[in-house]
Design a binder for these strands. Structure first.
Lengths: 111, 111
DNA sequence: TTCTATTATCGTATATTTGCGATATAAGAT
DNA sequence: ATCTTATATCGCAAATATACGATAATAGAA
């Protein structure tokens, strides 16, 4: 009775929603920001930059990875994460297609 | 112990996360799409376009309104919603500033 | 091998989200 | 005033998300 009815929507709607969901937490925004502001993959360090426990940060990283916003390789006791620019490009395009492009023709008529 | 530690992050991070959160559901994406694809405010009708109960749609509309993504006026038994383009412009800019602009200089170096 | 350092996963408690039916509300029609 | 119609809110049940400590896993150092 309280199931998510997400299947009822189109794939594009679900994809965009999932992308947004991955960004729907300040910790994950902060992680993405750190990854974006450097010219290389971050191996560790991320935990130190956030006001969260190591396990929690690891969970957030996992979510970002599952959503495809970042890529990561684990190399024993070290891991390496970086932004998946392709995904950002894709979803930014999708986002603009759905909303921003329509802005021009809609700008005049609204309450 | 399971509190959201959202206060620990910057205001911009929280704002962007809240914007993303508002879009983090296919039903709300679908609502925004409908509002964007018309040249006028939608007064009703939205419920008929979604596979959800009226009360659920109303809740989603409320969330979108609280997040500032749409504006709405209630006029007795009728209501009128439309997209708040200013908010989209703002957050799209913020988003691009944080990520897309950095893409150019980052494109080469990553795992 | 054992120790160390780093990251991932498990288990758990709490908070939030999602969805619906039932009910309230508000304006116009009768 | 009562009925109708459209929307919002309430109350509840179930699912998900958030966070942490404890523990596992993994590779290199001693």
């Amino acid at each position: 009775m309280a199931f998510h009815k997400k299947e009822e929507f189109t794939q594009k709607e679900q994809d965009l929603a999932n992308f947004a969901k991955a960004m729907a937490h300040p910790a994950r925004i902060a992680i993405l920001k750190v990854l974006a502001q450097r010219n290389e993959c971050i191996c560790g360090e991320i935990v130190d930059l956030l006001p969260l426990a190591q396990s929690t940060v690891s969970q957030h990283l996992k979510e970002l990875k599952n959503a495809g916003l970042i890529t990561g390789t684990v190399d024993g006791p070290k891991s390496c994460y970086c932004i998946n620019w392709k995904a950002f490009e894709k979803f930014n395009g999708e986002f603009n297609f759905l909303f921003t492009n329509l802005k021009i023709k809609n700008e005049k008529a609204c309450c």
